[in-house]
Amino acid sequence: MVVAQTQLSNGQARRRHHREPFLRFALKTIVKKPGRLIGFLIIVLFILMAIFGPMLYPKNLPIDPNAIYAPISWKYPLGTDFEGTSNLALVITGARYVLFAAAMGALFTVVFGTVLGLLSGYFAGATDSVIMRITDFILTLPSFPLLVVLSTVWNFGQPVAMGFVLGITGWGGLARAVRSQTLTLRERGFIEAARGLGLSSGHILFRQLMPNVGSYIAMNLLLAVTGSIYAEVGLFFLGVVPFHVNNWGVMLNLAVFSGGAMSSPQALPYLLSPMLALLILTLGIVLFLDAVDEMFNPRLREV
């Protein structure tokens, strides 16, 4: 028999082996491939932009009547807009609202989707039926038109409000996916064992089940961020939301509908600079996604 020679000294048993901290492990995963690192750096850059960007410039950006639609130069790396304001400054100061609202939207999506998906999949039966009917309802709602309608009655000056609305309409798909994952997991031995040991449902849901859908949730969080960005930028671009603040959507709207970017080539940088920002951010997220699965997979953790 494999009886290990075990000395039952308390000291030995209590000497904890510290696992590799998650952050260090995550960092190791990221630097493994250059693509992941680039993606990570892009995301960090945009986050810094959102936090500190507005502090770099005065509250009202300087206007230069002599440099309306100025071409790209050292002074205006992305050109200027119809008032002679630097496009770079506009992109940087506009990042905060866009990113904050998108982050809130993604957060709401993931929280609603995960919790409802877990509940539905684990409890099955009546709970499942009720939650899934609500999910079906949310999924069939045409979310973009709904946002348009909601925006007429709601003040979107606060990014939290915008994020909440984006989240409310977006969690359906994730809830369904988490539910189906939970349905297969609940048949696994360790869930039954947890029930047999008398562990509470809350423990089973959030301590046993959730870590096993962790990478899935994290990936969806990132994808929800891009989704939310597109949705809100779209709303501003269409002009259905009042322009309280400067942001990328507003820039696009002004460039196309008032700036004449579609007809005059001088105005093109004004249109392209927010699009470039969107493109780079999406690229960063897509590149970074590759690392997420590995980060949350316990099988790859070393001790």
């Binding site: 028999m1 000497r15 082996h17």
Partner: peptide
């Protein structure tokens, strides 16, 4: 029959 020190931290 397992050695706690060798196994507790493992996955």
């Amino acid at each position: 029959g397992l050695d706690p020190a060798a196994i507790l931290y493992k996955y």
